[in-house]
Amino acid sequence: MIKIESVTFKHQNGTVALQNVSLEIRTGEATAIVGENGAGKTTLVKHLNGLIKPTEGKVTVFDLDTKQTTVAQLARKVGVVFQNPDHQLFSETVSDEIAFGLRNFGFPESVIKKRLEWALEFFGLTEYRDSSPMMLSGGEKKRLCLAIVLAWDPEVIVLDEPTVGQDLVQKEKLREVIKMLLLRGKTVILVSHDMEFVWSLQPRVIVMAKGRVVADGAAAEVFSRPEVVGEANLMKPQLLELSVHLKNPPQKPFADIYEARQWLVSSVSR
């Protein structure tokens, strides 16, 4: 469980990136943090594994105060997958890249071997195990970054803009991975501008604007509030728009494209 209590963060130059943010993220929950560029999403996420310590207020991750804990200790529990793969790949081979984190966290070699095999297999990277990570395509690099983090099996997985530069097939695969993680009881926190992707997971949505939380609730509820959508400059998910504008709207907005298809096909044939 993650507790953020009245957190304010000021940069060295005095700009306030977060202003009195209080949140609680429960274990096993899927949460999406959305908002404009500069709204404070990434700053908030960096508080979760201690990369940033709050100027005021307190962040506790599984009862550990982030001010008293090292990033390495917190990272073992909170795995962050950053946006730009080129900012972290450095090893000679894909295998070494995955094993790097496991070695840092002090796993025994036998466990490292097992975890490595699992990660390579699961993300379809086995054939590249001895290739240089720099030689992978953009999508493969993204997958590798996800594999790197999931290999050490953190309790909380934070994904910063995971869909950037991914085609529909890859997005669908990513959605499946997230669903699987949720089934296994993991906590998933997603930072994204991709409203369609966010909607397809039907998570709890936290909307941020100018360093503050302006809305927090179920996706359907948050996106239906025009003042929130306006203040944070969001685009409503297309499936929600469709659900609302149908002549005979469904009881609940369509959660994903498959639901919408089924509904439309049955209503046309009626």
Partner: peptide, 29 residues
């Protein structure tokens, strides 16, 4: 540095040689 710290890299850990080696994951990217 943020990305590598998030993977458990502790730059100030270890003896002198190890500390220099700790810079590789930052310098290469």
């Amino acid at each position: 540095m943020d990305a590598q710290k998030s993977r458990g890299l502790e730059m100030q850990k270890g003896n002198f040689i190890k500390r220099i080696r700790n810079f590789i994951p930052v310098l290469v990217p």
